[in-house]
Design a protein around this nucleic acid. Structure first.
Length: 977
RNA sequence: GCUCGAGUGGUGGAAUUGGUAGACACGUUGGACUUAAAAUCCAAUGGACAUUAGUCCGUGCGGGUUCAAGUCCCGCCUCGAGUACCA
């Protein structure tokens, strides 16, 4: 019987689906294990072989854990709201829900063919109203919460209101907007309802505020910081400008410190942790208040070097700073305004690209030094960012290179306040070596002591305090898009009101057009039934809006990360209509044990998810402050492109054709063409040719030896212009389509349609089977590393499966032939060494090496002609997580009526590996010269004696007596001298 | 610029605490079987020298520690990822 993988794989995929083999139970006596993949956005292009890499790894782990007796939760779903479906809708009018559905079905078909052990009964789709009902619900919870810094957690807004009623807001230690006005309990009670709501918005964890946002005109929406890469939108690469807009924001900054601290709790890759740490950007320092000479206004600055305060020789404000207009003197007004106009014109991108050019303008105003009371000129400069700190800096040229360059450029005097340091060439920024001089009460102090002292003095003056600053900004949560979660929000007198949870979900309305309205409102502005009736508690026609019982609904939708920030929790109890998940479910499953996904989500999804998890934790909704214990970033699989090298030959008029020159001759085109002309005379004197760029050939036309299937290439309609091309080899000989070979050039590139190097998992499954695909993806190399795909190599793992199949099917007729014969010592040794290695490898996520181990095992057992059930049955179990279809088939042939999925993993027994002898490498001065076989239980002395007595040792030493003999029992012997 | 990661045969990659570098596989070459092909099997395969025995060189480069270094230390180079004037 031959290994008919197509039949076997189809059979078992059906079996698993019918029997719901991988359905996880929420009430189980077994220990839980939660293995999660980052769910995909179902794009129209479908999956290529790079996508399932992480899914295969997690599936192996999930299956392994089932064999180890765990109740495994291994779900899959779709992050199905998003831009591409909406862009497609704008172009074609096709409803995004339809496109999304089509794409999901295609994804599902592809995933099913690979034989994953997903519990599909738990599938979620973020664009389903039964799912986004809970996204809306969490939004409401955030709205109804504030961050109490004393308790260091989120609390219900009612506790804040209680404080306001009792004592106003002065003693409240909350994370809130910067500019909250002080009020007393009496004030609070005197406020109108609207005024009270305005105040509360400044404290809520999600709030509506006019903020400066990243507006992308091309996409017609705002973007979060992590959606902008190099100053342009991550999707599409469109320019982004700063714009003030009223938007929903998430007060993630409240959690900055905990997001930082709790990184120590999780086993995540260090680079990922580092990039979150950098993104949060904590810096310790002080806030210092400078009075402006002759004016009421003050300038607050944040500095990490308050110890250098006596080195301040000027102040710099961001051009956008609100004080600029107020303090600029009439003499300087023209220059300052011109400068502001010039910087406003420069895009964010220009500003970033051009760091070298120093620009700025003097405002004419002076600040007053808090200690020396000396006047300090106030400048503006675009190297100071409005969005960081207070948008103003105290410039200390002797201690900061940017300040130094600025001072030099504008001839501002530089004071040296460091002991024994030369600053004539550059600033001195080494904190460790700092000793302060020239600084009144700070003289002689090192950095740390000086900082402490100056903060103490500033507090005395009430002109400063120690402060910790974070780069992390609150996250803008509104998007001017159609295909996203609608907010459960309506407006009364301009103030946002939450729709109560029992009326959720608020379902996305139908619209005629997916573009912004003529008045510039988001696409939901096109909806005709999009108003909230508070009496009926229902969405009704806009025409009924009377601002008494019927109010307008929010027109923005939520961003892509809303639905993905808690889906891992929803999987625990995904079909629960009454709760986000049941208490029993969350108590049992707790958190994700293993999360596998791409590293591109480091500062987006993974930061927002941690934020929401902490919020839900504060509210007692989830039991863990971190949602995923261990996380692995799988590497990218790149494509191996194939190139054909062409020249265009012309002779006579209008007569031209293509000549493909083989890769190895590409450097000597002239010579090769000349050779070709010698053997194939072209009469026309006008013959000439020019070099054409290399052309991507579809990778399916190239075999494992890099030979092009010229006929297929010619007949591809894509390449009709090369239909009659002449292919020539290294020496200029003409390559005949059937006999000779044309060798293509190869290069590793990103897998993409435009490079014709995309390989789909479907075609691999069709030709080699899912088990081969799974094994090969793992065999390519370490999971975390990026590596090129080359279909040619798959024959290795495929023939391994065939070899394994043959272990079970002997004789000439290939009948199933497993015997109950007792295994030999060699059989047992091979098996147990394999068990040991495979188990270690899976625990270490080293899947590539266990595939190699399987190959060695099968090669050895084949050489030993092993047919013993006692050996082959455990082998099937070992292979099962990797190649589940063939494993199920062999398992059932071995006489088992139930699936292999939960059969216990073979137990390693060291006794079979005990060796009676050991082959010792004998090295002289570190170089191995020969090997000798010795008994394994010899002592150091006995080994040394045996080695020294050996003929070959004497031969090597040639009469010399060794200085030293090093014996490492069980390892090596080294003779020195 | 800063932070992190990585450099090993023609290729993908192996190599517990420093202890036989190149496992396993692809590719290549030769052979068996076959009318032929496919499939399968066998052998060789880091480089140089050598008839053999064997010798020398070899894990990006240069130093160092050690009986012993792909692995540890110091200094560089190259590539990749992230970040972008963060006061």
């Amino acid at each position: 019987m031959t290994y008919d993988f197509r039949k076997i794989e189809e059979k078992w995929q059906e079996f698993w689906a019918e029997n719901q083999t991988f359905k996880a139970e929420n009430d189980s006596q077994k220990e839980k294990f939660y293995v999660l993949d980052m769910f995909p956005y179902p794009s129209g292009a479908g999956l290529h072989v790079g996508h399932p890499l992480g899914y295969i790894a997690s599936d192996i782990y999930a299956r392994y854990k089932r064999h180890k007796g765990f109740n495994v939760l291994h779900p899959m779903g779709y992050d199905s709201f998003g831009l591409p479906a909406e862009q497609y809708a704008i172009q074609t009018g096709q409803h995004p829900a339809i496109t999304t559905e089509t794409n999901i079905n295609r994804y599902r078909e592809q995933l099913d063919k690979i034989g994953f052990s997903f519990d599909w009964s738990r599938e979620v789709r973020t664009s389903d109203s039964s799912y986004y009902k809970w996204t809306q619900w969490i939004f409401i919870q955030l709205f109804n919460s504030w961050y109490n810094k004393d308790a260091d957690k989120a609390e219900d807004i009612s506790s804040l209101i209680a404080i306001f009623e009792k004592e106003g807001n002065q003693s409240v230690n909350a994370v809130c907007d910067e500019d909250v006005a002080a009020f007393s309990a009496t004030d609070w009670k005197a406020f109108t309802v609207k005024e009270q709501q305005e105040v509360l918005l400044q404290y809520r964890l999600t709030y509506l505020a006019e903020t400066e946002v990243n507006w992308c005109p091309a996409l017609g929406t705002v973007l979060a910081n992590d959606e902008i890469v190099n100053g342009v939108s991550e999707r599409g690469g469109h320019p982004v400008i700063r714009k003030k807009m009223t938007q929903w924001s998430m007060r993630i900054s409240a959690y900055a410190q905990r997001l930082l601290d709790d990184l120590t709790m999780v086993d995540w890759p260090q680079p990922l942790k580092d990039s979150q740490t950098n993104w949060i950007g904590r810096s310790e320092g002080a806030e210092v208040t400078f009075r402006v000479k002759g004016r009421e206004e003050v300038i607050d600055v944040f500095t990490t070097r308050p110890d250098t305060i006596f080195g301040v020789s000027f102040m710099t404000l961001a051009p956008e700073h609100e004080l600029v207009a107020k303090i600029t003197t009439s003499e300087q007004k023209e220059e300052v305004e011109a400068y502001i106009a010039a910087t406003a014109k420069r895009s964010e991108r220009d500003r970033m690209a051009d760091v070298k050019t120093i620009t700025g303008a003097f405002t004419g105003a002076y600040a007053e030094h808090p200690f020396s009371k000396e006047p300090i000129p106030i400048w503006i400069g675009d190297y100071v960012l409005a969005g960081y700190g207070t948008g103003a800096v105290m410039s200390v040229p002797c201690g900061d290179q940017r300040d130094y360059d600025f001072a030099k450029h504008f001839n501002i005097p530089i004071t040296n306040i460091f002991e024994g340091v030369d600053i004539s060439e550059e600033a001195f920024a080494d904190k460790e070596k700092t000793v302060i001089a020239n600084s009144d009460f700070l003289n002689g102090l090192p950095y740390k002591k000086a900082v402490k002292r100056v903060i103490f003095e500033l507090e005395k003056l009430e002109q400063g305090k120690g402060k910790i600053n974070y780069r992390l900004r609150d996250a803008v949560f509104s998007r001017q898009r159609y295909w996203g979660e609608p907010f459960p929000v309506y407006y009364v007198d301009g103030m946002p009101q939450m729709i109560s949870a029992e009326h959720l979900p608020i379902v996305l309305p139908e619209v005629e057009k997916y573009l912004p309205t003529e008045t510039g409102e988001p696409p939901l502005g096109n909806a005709t039934v999009w108003a909230w009736d508070v009496k009926k508690s229902a969405v009704v026609s806009n025409q009924l809006i009377d601002h008494k019982t019927v109010f307008p609904l929010e027109l923005n939708t939520m961003p892509g990360w809303a639905g993905s920030s808690y889906y891992f929790n929803r999987y625990m109890n995904p079909n629960n209509e009454n709760e986000i998940f049941s208490k029993e479910a969350i108590d049992y499953w707790q958190d994700v044990d293993l999360y596998i996904g791409g590293s591109e989500h480091a500062t987006g999804h993974l930061l927002y998810s941690r934020f929401w998890q902490k919020f839900l934790f504060d509210k007692g909704i989830v039991p863990k402050p971190e949602f995923a214990k261990k996380l692995i970033n799988q590497g990218m699989i790149t494509g191996t492109s194939a190139f054909v090298y062409f020249v265009v030959a012309r002779f006579a008029k209008d007569k031209q054709f293509y000549i493909a020159v083989s890769k190895s001759a590409w450097g000597r085109v002239d010579e090769v063409i000349k050779n070709w002309r010698n053997t194939h005379p072209v009469n026309e004197k006008a013959f000439r040719y020019s070099v054409l760029n290399r052309i991507h050939s579809p990778v399916e036309y190239v075999n494992s030896s890099d030979e092009l299937d010229i006929e297929s290439f010619r007949n591809d309609p894509m390449y009709s212009e090369f239909k009659d091309a002449i292919f020539i080899g290294e020496k200029g000989e003409v390559i005949k389509d059937n006999n000779d070979t044309y060798i293509v050039g190869r290069e590793v590139e990103k897998m993409s349609k435009s490079k014709y190097n995309v390989v789909s998992p479907d075609s691999i499954c069709q030709e080699y089977g899912a088990d081969s695909l799974r094994l090969y993806e793992m065999f390519l190399g370490p999971l975390e590393q990026s590596k090129p795909w080359n279909t040619a190599g798959i024959t290795g793992v495929h023939s391994f499966l065939k070899k394994m199949w043959r272990l079970f099917h002997g004789g000439n007729d290939g009948a199933f032939m497993v015997t109950d014969a007792a295994p030999t010592a060699d059989n047992l040794k091979t098996l147990h060494k394999t068990i040991k290695k495979v188990e270690e490898d899976i625990e270490n996520f080293s899947f590539n090496t266990s595939v190699a181990t399987f190959m060695i095992c099968v090669n050895e057992l084949a050489a030993q002609k092993c047919n013993s059930r006692e050996i082959l049955e455990p082998l099937v179990l070992l292979v099962s997580p990797y190649a589940p279809h063939i494993a199920e088939e062999l398992w059932s042939k071995l006489g088992h009526a139930t699936s292999i999925a939960t059969a216990p993993f073979p137990k390693f027994e060291g006794k079979y590996l005990v060796e009676s002898s050991k082959e010792y490498p004998i090295s002289f001065n570190g170089k191995v010269r020969f090997k000798i076989e010795l008994q394994a239980d010899l002592s150091k002395e006995e080994i040394e004696a045996a080695v020294m007595a050996h003929d070959k040792t004497r031969e090597q030493l040639q009469g010399r007596s060794p200085k030293k003999v090093i014996v490492v029992p069980g390892k090596i012997v080294n003779i020195v001298g």
